[in-house]
Amino acid sequence: MSDSIASGSQTAAIKVHGLSKTFGNQFALRKIDFELPPGEFLTIFGPNGAGKTTLIRILSTLTHASSGEVEMGGIVPSKEPDKIRRQIGVIGHQTYLYENLTAEENLKFYGRLYGVTDLDQKIATIIASVGLRLRRRDCVRTFSRGMQQRLAIARALLHEPTILLLDEPYTGLDQHAAEMLSGWLRELRSSQRTTLMVTHDLERGIDLADRIAILKKGRIVFYEKRENVDRSNFKQTYYKLVGDEQNTA
């Protein structure tokens, strides 16, 4: 199995080696290894509490690993955090939006923090493409969950990151918006962006993926290239690997 994990000979976009994270005396991640070549799309599935969010938080420099190494595009995040922060776009469980600011102001705020040039232009474009143009002057407080999620996506993409870390980005999106998101992600992938996505949506996850991983109780129990995965069978594979247990990690 380790053969399939350590693949590319060129510098991987994301390289994780022996990564562990403990909370008190509870393991969230146990010695995780994987590599993701640049421009590829990795989908991670796993039951609640498997450690998916923890992995994304470590990769996005929000928290430190207990042990192990991470390298992204040749940069070690714990050593040069600001360099990596410029390159990653993150969608998390929360939207990171300020409720008392309008959609436009939220984007303006984050855009300025990242030092985005041509900000007004870019905001106008991205706000139109997430379908919030008519609501752009309204406070986020008045938005529905799905609208907030759309704005959160705009926020994550505004500074044109090269690596995307997405934690359940489909949360709260309607069919239409979900299709739209899939469309963007496909587009972004073709423009050589590396993506790591966590989702519970097997269909969409497989559709987009170049590689598929399953995380269970902090371990990677499955890691395959998309072409080696039998799609019609995947659901059974998944349940066989993780689904037989009621209680999670």
């Binding site: 929000l62 922060r85 410029r86 993150v90 990171y96 939006l97 300020y98 008392n100």
Partner: peptide, 18 residues
Amino acid sequence: VYEVDKGCMQGLMLAPVN
């Protein structure tokens, strides 16, 4: 409180900001 409640603090921490 503003920063913590909607996770905005994490949004700030994700940005390349001192």
